[in-house]
Amino acid sequence: MNRFEFPAFLKLQNLRPWWLKMAVLILIGYPLISNRPAGIIAVGLEKLVPETPGSVLALPIITFFIWACCLPSLGTAKLLDYLAAAYTMAITTVVSGAVLRGLLPALFPADSADNFRLLRVYFNILAVFPYSLTFLNSFAVSNLMTRLTKTRGRFRDAGLHLALALRICQHVGEVIPKLLLVWREENPDMLLPRCRDDWHSISSLLRWPVWIIRSISQWIFACIILTFEPIPVMVNEIEQIDESRDSDAPDKI
């Protein structure tokens, strides 16, 4: 993979102090939690080019803006990895939503704004997925833990638990895209199993659904195991840091 390095000042994780980084990240994510920026873009577009469906186009424009902000911090390869997961999730959600709406009209009554809503869900997923992972990975948990262990007070334990939760979320973001490579070892052709001597005939059409369900369940298992596996190690690390802080404290000597 070609490695194009973005300048360091564009990477959000290099922003200091931490509150400025937090403020910039919240500002980037603001269009995702408020309708105001989308409304302003829509009005602007409709003024610029009359008859343009501004409200529809504002959603992808906001998504592209968030991708552009995440790109220097994540790099092209990592952003594409995250987007692959985001696109899979978004397409699955939107298609299943539209199908359910057709199958169960009593539960999901259709109206003219339905397609717009589905499109909004689609672009929201595409924007939120890489943004949230960029947000989580922008903060160094080790620094946070070191600071927290040096402090005293009632918020110390809560802060340590929060740091642990943040580290686990970072770990999940790092591990899950890489799990695809592990999964491919068993299923190298993505849609076909590795051991398939007898998959030439029409019977393969009958076996394929069984195989696809098995391979998806393997994927979920791998995700669960590799996500939860490091938690005890991380808890142990925090305990050790905590203990060493206690033993170094002047009142203990």
Binding site: L80, D81, A84, L180, L181
Partner: peptide, 11 residues
């Protein structure tokens, strides 16, 4: 591009 990269990575 994203889906293609995921489909072909390490293959």
């Amino acid at each position: 591009l994203a889906l293609w990269k995921a489909m072909t990575a390490g293959s």
